[in-house]
Structure formats: C-alpha cells, structure tokens
Nucleic acid binder design. Structure first.
Length: 295
DNA sequence: TTGCAGGGGTCAA
DNA sequence: TTGACCCCTGCA
C-alpha cells in the first residue's frame, strides 16, 4: 500500500494521522459527492460508511477519526479517503488557467471519496430533480428502515442496506422514506442488482463508456447519475458529471455562451483528460458556494 | 395564512 | 424535444 509519508497512531478509541495533506472535511463532505456525513457543532463530521460510524475532524494538521483503529484505518479509511493519491500533484496538473486556479484555491482540501458503489447508485438515483437536504433525509430514512443499527457515542446510526435487503421490500414501505417518484426506480434497481442483471463490481474493469452504458440500463439512471456513480465510488475518474451547476459554470467561465451537454463533455474530456472528474469537483464546489451562473 | 414555483434528472410520448 | 414528476422549502 502506498503510504504517502503519514504517521498513524491510536489514542483511546480514536486514531490520529499526521502528515496528511490536501484534506479539509468541509470541502470533502460538502462538495456534493456524499450524503451521509453530518456536520457537528464543533465543525467535525459524523457519518457512516461500510457499516462503520465515525467522527472525522482535521485540526492542527492532524486527521482524527474517532471510533477507529490502526487496522481499520489501513483496511478501509485509507482507501475511502483516497489517501494513496497525491492531490498536490493533481492540483498542479489541473491549474491550467485562472478559472481552475481559483476553483482549486477555493476548494483546496477536496478529495474524491471511494464510496460503496451500490450506496452511491441509490443515493444518486434519489438525487434526480431533488435537493441535498432532502436527499440526505431519504438516504438516512432508507438506512434506518432497512439497514443495521450501529451505536456510536451514545447515539444510533444505521448502515446502508444491501440490494438484497431492499429487493424484497414493498413499494409502500419504501415510500415512507420520502423518495417520491424515485421509489419505484430504487426498488427496480435493487431487484436488478440483487438479481445480477448488472454486476457493479465489474464496472471498474470495463471501459468508461461501457461502464456508463451498463449503469444506464438501470431505471432512474441517466447519463448524469451514471457519471456520478462512477466518479464518487472511485470507479472512474475520467467522467465529467454535467448537472445544472456545472453547465452554468462552464457556460459562464469557459464558453461565454450557451453550450450543449455534449459540447461540455467533449471539452472536459479534451481539456482535463483522465482527471476530468476531479476537475469537476473543484468547479462544482466553487460554482455552488459562490452561486456562479445563478443569474 | 395560503398558494405556488422550482430543485444536483429521468422517463415516456 | 418537451412536460410530468414526489416532496419540501422559500417567498409572495
């Protein structure tokens, strides 16, 4: 495993990691890639990933993960936070113009999480024509109804349920989670994944266009959702999820005119290449936080 | 207080 | 290519 020169030590039930760079919990958890991390009063974030409930903070150049161990860190969190990747190098490569330099300066601590692809798939089906607080509520509700309870710090958290757990649900029960018209897509997708119609674990070995097409066979998954699933699960980094925010920022800052989805995607592929997805996150966070393009 | 537009897209016609 | 769509929030 690549180590990147950081040092991990245990301190009670927490681990403290020194030497991690390019890491800012606010940037990471609020750049739109995840829906399971909740900001606490002290600025830290508590969340659930792969059945683990932890609290994450970054203070005095130290990454602190409460409710973890060195083994757990090596086995899971290192990969989850993409710590084997040198973001300083990536940022230098992406700093091709003033727009990207500004966006990177603004969201300097973004890292692309490597989230469970099944959870990412359902989360982004829910994201269609929806708002972030609502998406978070629905994902939390699904976890509470169908997932497994995890106790942490005197509170109850819930793992995200497997496809098998969701497959046998009645649509009425799923609708309790307030997913609206997306509930039928969730149920059908759970049946398709649990039944092996689409093997999510095989997407990484496929070409990006093939992986995209495979995901788009699933109900509720169009081009934007497919790209988000590939990017935020760490499966493919050369996609450029193009939602309304990205469309606005690209039109306003790069094209200086209206542009079609295809034009934007083609431009991103040519200009950012294999790092297009990471560029997208810096641009998205910059655009949304600064309301660029919203009149 | 009530009413209405619109949101990190997708689907169907 | 265009409108409907669950649900909720913000704002007349």
């Amino acid at each position: 495993m690549e180590h990147n020169g950081y040092k991990v030590r245990e301190k009670g039930k927490s681990i403290v990691v020194e030497g991690v760079g390019d890491f800012n919990p606010v940037h990471i958890f609020e750049c739109g890639q995840c829906f399971r991390w909740v900001r606490q009063d002290d600025g830290s974030y508590t969340g659930v990933a792969a059945g683990r409930a932890v609290n994450v903070s970054f203070l005095n150049e130290k990454l602190i993960i409460q409710n973890s161990t060195k083994e757990d860190f090596a086995d899971f969190w290192h990969n989850y936070f993409d710590l084997g990747r040198d973001y300083s190098k990536i940022k230098a490569m992406l700093s091709k113009d003033d727009i990207m330099r500004k966006a990177i300066e603004f969201g300097w601590g973004i890292r692309l999480l490597r989230q469970d692809i099944w959870e990412t798939l359902i989360s982004f089906i829910i994201s269609a024509n929806n708002r972030i607080p609502m998406i978070m509520k629905t994902v939390a509700a699904i976890s509470k109804v169908y997932g497994t309870r995890i106790e942490f710090d005197g509170k109850d958290y819930y793992s995200f349920p497997s496809a098998e757990s969701l497959r046998d649900s009645e649509i009425e029960q799923l609708e309790v989670c307030r997913g609206g018209f997306r509930c039928k897509y969730i149920l059908q997708t759970a049946k398709a994944v649990a039944g092996g119609f689409v093997d999510l674990s095989k997407l990484g070995a496929m070409s990006t266009p093939d992986a995209r097409d495979s995901l788009m066979k699933l109900p509720g998954v169009g081009p934007k959702v497919a790209d988000c699933v590939l990017l935020f699960s760490g499966t493919k980094h050369d996609v450029f999820p193009t939602d309304v925010w990205i469309k606005r920022v690209m039109e306003e800052l790069y094209f200086k005119r209206e542009a079609s989805m295809k034009e934007i995607q083609d431009f991103a592929a040519g200009y950012f290449g294999s790092l297009a997805g990471i560029a997208q996150q810096y641009l998205f966070y910059y655009a949304r936080e600064n309301k660029i393009g919203s009149n």
